[in-house]
Structure formats: structure tokens, C-alpha cells
Design a protein around this nucleic acid. Structure first.
Lengths: 139, 139
DNA sequence: ATTGATGCAAACACTTTGCATCTAA
DNA sequence: TTAGATGCAAAGTGTTTGCATCAAT
């Protein structure tokens, strides 16, 4: 796991991205992240490791990491952008409208259908966004 | 068509929504709308009919109409919210990332699969959002 | 005559940016 | 050493809101 971060660090440096204390801290925080935190939450988690870390640096770093394909940005309805590591396999999201909880899911069938539809209309998919806003079934 | 607007007007009034000159103008503009304009664009289109119309009134009216189920609001990536009449059948959107053009499509198969996935995970869908960001196939 | 709607300007939430200073390479 | 990163504060964007006035019912 420390190993993974090291490899990532090297790759980023190779891409011309300087790994400052701030960025290293954010990479650490992201490595431990299992949920979908927004910029403010990531800042909150990283500040203890880099006192004085500014929110603008968080935003700038997140943009840089997104550009490098290290993280993904999601813009769910009525919420600030949130982030997750990009290393995981592609998936889509269900958002519990009552709790805000995010559940990941994946459907190859749907992906196929999406691709087919785009093709039939003369397009190719650059990326897509599929979000199910749900509530727990009272059973 | 004038007829449709009249019926809508009556229904809105019945729901306690006052039809002011500003709102009547916006309803007219929306009735003629085939695309997916944002608040500023709707304001631009309505101002000639109601000189002095303010942008905040447009926003307030759009919220009211959305609440009444008359229009739908979409929040595509990197763009201000855009609107369309809600009377049309449910559909999803493809957005051409190069031109911004919006194409509507619909897939019952996908809807079924979404519902099944939600059910399997113990949820029911409140609403969903599916957007394909695409580019024209060069070919 | 009421009560909700308007226009204006100010506030809002989230995000980006200009600039002087610092620091990773 | 030097180009890129930082912190701060200020600006930006899209949207909402407080308030005095106005107009639809």
C-alpha cells in the first residue's frame, strides 16, 4: 500500500507533477479513502498532516490529479463535487436521497446498450454519467 | 397550441400559482422551445415580450414550474442548468462534447435494468440521471 | 383587499485565480 | 536555479434571497 503510493508518486513526477508535502498528504488521504468526500472534507482530513494547508491547494491538487487520471470527480445533484480514486474498475452510482449514502454498482449490459445507442445515432461515447437517486425499500 | 397553454394556465392557477405577465411570457417561450435553454437564454427570449423582466423572476418562475411538474431541470457537466417542457415522454440525453448539442434518446431495456439493480440492492428509484457525453463518429 | 410576485441589489455556495513568496527538482 | 506550487485574499459563476413595491385574484 505504501508501495502503491510510491509508484504513483513516481509516475506523477514523471508526468511533470511535483510532489510537495501538501500533495503527498492528499495522496495519503486519498489512499485511505473508501467513501466519496468533497474538497472541504479532504481538506479537513489532510490538515492534520500539513497544518496550514489551504483549500485552494486542495482544489488545485484535485484538478491536477484528475487531469492525470489518478482520481475521478463526480457532480451529484445538489452537492459539491466529490472525488474517488480512479484505480477501481468502472462503476456507476446510486445515491440514497434520504441519507446521501453512495452505493457503487456496475452493469455490463447497460454499458453495452449505451454504446449501441450511441453508435446507432452516429456517435461514440467519450464518457457517461449514470446516477440512480434512490430510497431504501420499506419492506 | 394556444389551447394547450390556456389549459396549463388554468391548472397552474388552480394549484395556487398566479399567472403574471412575466410568467405568461415565460410559458409562451417554453411552449415554443425545442431545445434545452438555460435561465439566461430563457430570459433573453422573454425580455422582448416583457421589457424589464428580471433574471431573478426567471429563476423563481422556473423553480415554480419545476415544482408543478411543468418543466424539467437538467444539470449537464460544466454547464448552467437547462430546462425543457415536462410533457414529453421520459428520455435521457446525449451531449455532444464538441458542440454542446443535446440529443434525446430512450431505452426501455436500460430502464428495466436500472430498476432491477436498484431492487436487488434493496432500493427503489426516485429518479435517475443518465447522460452520454459523445462525439460524432468520424467515418 | 390580500397575498403572492416583482425588480433590485446583496448574499450565497462552490470554485478558480492573481500575486508575492516559497520549495521540489 | 528555476519553474512550478503555495497561501492568502479577491474575483468568478450560477443561483437564491431580503425587502419595499406592485399587481393578480
Amino acid at each position: 500500500m505504501q508501495d502503491r503510493t510510491d509508484r504513483l508518486t513516481r509516475a506523477l513526477r514523471a508526468a511533470g507533477v511535483r510532489i510537495t508535502r501538501q500533495r503527498a498528504a492528499l495522496l495519503d488521504v486519498l489512499a485511505e479513502t473508501e467513501d466519496h468526500p468533497d474538497a472541504v472534507e479532504l481538506h479537513r482530513r489532510a490538515v492534520p498532516r500539513v497544518p496550514g494547508l489551504s483549500l485552494s491547494t486542495v482544489y488545485r491538487t484535485l484538478s491536477a490529479l484528475e487531469e492525470q487520471g489518478v482520481i475521478q470527480r463526480h457532480q451529484f445533484e445538489g452537492a459539491p463535487a466529490c472525488f474517488e480514486r480512479a484505480e477501481t474498475a468502472h462503476h456507476d452510482h446510486m445515491i440514497d436521497v434520504e441519507t446521501g449514502e453512495v452505493v457503487e454498482f456496475r452493469s455490463d449490459r447497460i454499458e453495452e446498450l449505451q454504446a449501441r445507442i450511441a453508435t446507432e445515432l452516429g456517435y461514440e461515447i467519450v464518457h457517461h454519467r449514470m446516477e440512480l437517486y434512490v430510497r431504501k425499500r420499506r419492506g
